[in-house]
């Protein structure tokens, strides 16, 4: 029944998928950590990354598209520009306002982004340029293989999590970003510009989220609206990791990726041990989310508020 090689294969692709989610989840956790905002547009921002490559690199909209890898680079640059622009135009207006207003704004932004993409491309699957679709798989030990997009995601996610951890732990700017998150005013009197803090957080977050979106699209050879749903799935990851913890988001995302792969292999369709029904793979992470919220509301590494009595 449970064949070891198959199990290994599924585990590997679970980790790969998890690493993709991890990029998007870390983008989410970063914003929460620095600004206290739950970004409900995260799935749509990932989708902007995914469709950005379609926009720039295929003939879908432009008559003379860029070469595939130039389109890839340009899309990532676009993500950075989007981060700066959003801070300038939108989020700066909400400094000093309740965090809830910003959260609602992210909901609105999500709607705008997904509407805009639907307007440009329709709600259809759009294939990537052939240079960016890796049909190939990389061989691992014991007969297991990994999709190239997943392999890139795993490496990239590891680099991002390590870089962010080192940044927050060992630099003055990293410390001050965490400080500004706990007490904005007390950080301001130390010379922190809240505008710059927010701009930095959004820029990094949107850039890594867009990269996550691109890789997610690459793993299925093109961009589709299903990417929008990752905005919800990564919620399970981030809550499990503890919302404001970046390594937590990473680990949570890997767990969610594994759950989803196990769920869709062992609990649905022809390969199932127990056939629960189609789509159970996507449901499992969300069931997991419910359990986490009940059992461990601060997640694995979340900051429990220090209450003095």
């Amino acid at each position: 029944m449970v064949d070891v090689t198959t199990f290994l294969d599924i585990t590997v692709s679970g980790i790969g998928l998890g690493a993709l989610y991890a990029l998007i989840a870390m983008g989410f956790a970063l914003i929460y950590k620095v600004t206290g905002v739950l970004n409900f547009a995260q799935g749509q921002i990932a989708m902007i990354g995914a469709y950005g490559v379609v926009f720039l690199g295929t003939g879908a909209v432009l008559s003379s598209p860029l070469p595939a890898f130039a389109a890839l680079a340009a899309t990532i640059a676009l993500g950075i520009v989007l981060g700066i622009a959003l801070e300038r135009i939108v989020f700066r207006q909400f400094i000093g306002e309740p965090v809830l207003s910003v959260i609602i704004v992210t909901l609105a932004l999500g709607g705008i982004f997904s509407g805009f993409i639907a307007f440009l491309f329709g709600r259809n699957f759009r294939a990537y340029p052939p240079e960016l679709t890796f049909g190939s798989r990389i061989d691992l030990v014991a007969g297991a293989t990994i999709q190239t997009a997943f392999a890139i995601a795993v490496l990239l996610a590891l680099v991002v999590v390590a870089a962010l951890m080192l940044f927050f732990r060992y630099t003055v700017t990293g410390s001050i970003l965490r400080a500004a998150a706990t007490d904005e005013q007390a950080a301001m009197v130390l010379g922190v510009s809240i505008e710059r803090t927010i701009a930095l957080a959004w820029t990094i977050s949107i850039a890594i989220t867009a990269i996550g979106g691109i890789l997610l699209a690459m793993s299925s050879d093109g961009a589709g609206f299903s990417i929008e749903a990752t905005g919800i799935i990564i919620f399970a990851a981030v809550v499990f990791g503890g919302l404001d913890s970046i390594p937590g988001a990473f680990i949570g995302a890997i767990v969610v990726g594994l759950l989803q792969e196990y769920g869709s292999f062992y609990f649905e369709g022809g390969t199932a041990i127990v056939d629960v029904g189609p789509g159970f793979g996507e449901i499992l992470p969300l069931l997991f989310l419910l359990v986490v919220i009940v059992v461990k509301p601060y997640g694995l590494f979340g900051t429990e508020r220090i209450e003095r009595l």
């Binding site: 003055v172 410390s175 001050i176 400080a179 706990t182 005013q185 950080a187 130390l190 922190v192 900051t303």
Partner: peptide
């Protein structure tokens, strides 16, 4: 107004920020 989640050392480190926005 200490930064509660930061260690004492990290709190002190935040005092360095003014000095050329150092890293």
């Amino acid at each position: 107004r200490v930064f509660e989640d930061l260690t004492v050392e990290e709190n002190l480190r935040c005092g360095l920020y003014r000095d050329g926005r150092r890293f």
